[in-house]
């Protein structure tokens, strides 16, 4: 199957150049360098049509940056993006625009992504009218139909975002994304700010829409519980790199990377009572100065010399299950590990 969208070797660097005074200081011998953050560091990710890929990571790991690159709203510094097998950068203008339109993003905070001075009719109807998908006269009907689809009362057409609750605003964000008939939706922490009962309503809406409209999702979240529920495949990011990716069932049954194992064991669930919290040590390092070799080695309980020196590559450890850990090539240690996972 040709993936709907495929990123190959995608990187994104953010750099802060030197200002005038710093340049001057450097002329006099000060050791000042441009500061570069590798927000996304050589990532390859393919998403098949109809698939829901959950992208998980802690703050600062680059998951949102990767999402924006996949959505086509942030150019990558290196690497290529293919849409249905065709290099997006090589597409003729008209076609490239069409591709961009079929990828839509839904954000975490609907209040900051909805214009407070526009009515729902304008917010949802603007893009399809501008792109000539519906004549302006028919926009109210189209928006009303969309509102009904996402569970809002169509009579609220002329209301403003502040007149809605958080969950309703998220529904407006979804209606806006759907208005241009997308095939690929990037949800960036779209349910994180919602109360659990509302979050469950929105998650169910996402699944209904997927069935009905045949959507493909990249679902970015820090919440493994939500991702477990919604995803077909899971990818875990740590400091700009994907460290593990697998079909969801295999992933939750047998996590491989020490970071993933730690993450999974630390998600609080109601099944574990008065547990002994046994957290991984240390903080998430700054992406400005990532550790050498495997980025996780300073916090990893199994780290050995090789981890400090050499970046582990993603290797297939089971069909469709890839993990970037040197332990997988060190049989003795690999045998010792599963026992610890279960304890």
């Amino acid at each position: 199957m040709t993936p709907l969208i495929e990123g190959t070797g995608v990187s994104r660097r953010f750099s802060r150049g030197l200002d005038y005074a710093e340049k001057l200081a450097r002329m006099f011998g000060a050791k000042l360098e441009e500061r570069v953050v590798h927000a996304v560091d050589d990532i390859s990710l393919a998403i098949n049509p109809g698939e829901v890929v959950g992208l998980v990571g802690e703050s600062g790991c680059g998951k949102s940056t990767l999402g924006r690159i996949m959505a086509g709203i942030l150019p990558q510094s290196a690497g290529t993006l293919h849409w249905e097998g065709k290099d997006i950068s090589a597409l003729p203008r008209q076609e490239a625009k069409a591709v961009r339109l079929t990828s839509q993003m839904i954000f975490q905070d609907p209040m900051s992504s909805l214009n407070p001075r526009k009515t729902i009719l304008d917010i949802v109807g603007e893009a399809p009218v501008a792109h000539g998908m519906v004549p302006k006269r028919q926009a109210p009907d189209m928006v009303a139909a969309l509102m009904e689809r996402v569970g809002l009362d169509p009579s609220y057409l002329k209301r403003y975002p502040h007149q809605f609750s958080g969950g309703q605003r998220q529904r407006i964000g979804i209606a806006r994304a759907l208005a241009v008939k997308p095939r690929f939706i990037i949800c960036d922490e779209s349910v994180s700010a919602l109360d659990v009962s509302i979050q469950a309503q929105i998650l169910n809406l996402f699944m209904e829409l997927k069935q009905e409209l045949g959507l493909t999702y990249l679902f970015i979240s820090h919440d493994l519980g939500v991702v477990k529920h919604i995803s077909d495949r899971v990818a875990i990011m740590y400091l700009g790199r994907i460290v593990e990716s697998a079909p969801a069932d295999a992933f939750f049954a047998a996590p491989n990377h020490p970071y993933t194992v730690a993450l999974l064991s630390e998600v609080p669930t109601i099944k574990q009572r008065r547990r002994q919290f046994n957290p991984v040590k240390g903080e998430i390092p700054s992406p400005l100065h990532p550790p050498s070799g495997c980025h996780f080695h300073p916090r990893c309980p199994h780290a050995f010399d090789r981890c400090r020196m050499e970046r582990p590559l993603l290797r297939e450890i089971a069909p469709g299950h890839i993990s970037a850990c040197h332990l997988n090539e060190t049989p003795v240690l690999a045998i010792a590990r599963p026992a610890e996972i279960t304890t």
Binding site: G167, D195, S197, I198, A200, Q201, G225, K228, I230, T269
Partner: peptide, 22 residues
């Protein structure tokens, strides 16, 4: 509340959200 939290359920179990809002 307990049925709304995905982390409390096994994979594939459907969420049964509380209708409406507080």
């Amino acid at each position: 509340l307990m049925r709304s939290v995905p982390a409390n359920l096994d994979r594939g179990e459907t969420l049964t959200p509380i209708p409406g809002m507080a």
